[in-house]
Design a protein around this nucleic acid. Sequence first.
DNA 1: CACACTGTATTAATACACTGGTACGGACGG
DNA 2: CCGTCCGTACCAGTGTATTAATACAGTGTG
Lengths: 128, 128
Amino acid sequence: MLLHVNPSTGLPIYLQIQAQVKHAVAAGALRAGDALPSVRKLASDLRINPNTVARAYLELEREGVIAAVPGGGTFVADGTSGLLKAERVRRFRPLARQVAVEGRQLRLSRDEIVQFVDEELKALGGKS
Amino acid sequence: MLLHVNPSTGLPIYLQIQAQVKHAVAAGALRAGDALPSVRKLASDLRINPNTVARAYLELEREGVIAAVPGGGTFVADGTSGLLKAERVRRFRPLARQVAVEGRQLRLSRDEIVQFVDEELKALGGKS
DNA sequence: CACACTGTATTAATACACTGGTACGGACGG
DNA sequence: CCGTCCGTACCAGTGTATTAATACAGTGTG
């Protein structure tokens, strides 16, 4: 569980943490039940305030990616519970549309766009 | 050129305008050389400040989507000039990665994710 | 030149995002 | 129990995003 943060990137720190945790989970580097570094530990490692880490964890919990137990620790959630597939698809569509529009704006062909997305999917770990 | 804006959506107005123009261009509803509504006209139609429209146009111009001529008007740019393909691909990758990660987080299969993106691309107008 | 239109620059009011300091309540091993 | 770890809540400060009011500058027409 190696995280790094760049405060001068413009992107808020808590979003950087969020993105990296999400990526690690999606890639299988973190699996259901795995413990995340504690709020204080990670904050100390990154030289930032515990609240900033807590905020990142809070939003990840809202999205169902992780589960925090007060006094216990924070763990990767198992995706079993949660939303109906229809709802998940509904949440995904705007993002899919954005990729389509941006890709076309960059004058990429339909095939290229699809291919790039598929490459990133493969990079996450091919199956499922 | 029909635009609508919802001030209470949380998403900044200038971003809503940006997204809709981008979508219209990507979908071919607006073509290279077409005139956009003037800053004041659109602002008046939407009951917002001209500066807000100007800001949306400004960023669209930075991205090369449109071209503004002071005193003249604002027009859809022809994508001919501009960035090298390598650069365009470089800009696209982070977005492709984000779709991949989010899609997986929503427990969609690789095929489903690719398919949803392709559907949005088709909805924009199939060729190229 | 006057005029009516264009986009642009400057400045300001306001709200909210972001981060941090600090204190609180629960879990767990001595 | 007590100390130490956990996540959490509250509050303040700083900066920046968002929108707007206003004035400026270029273009084209009669």
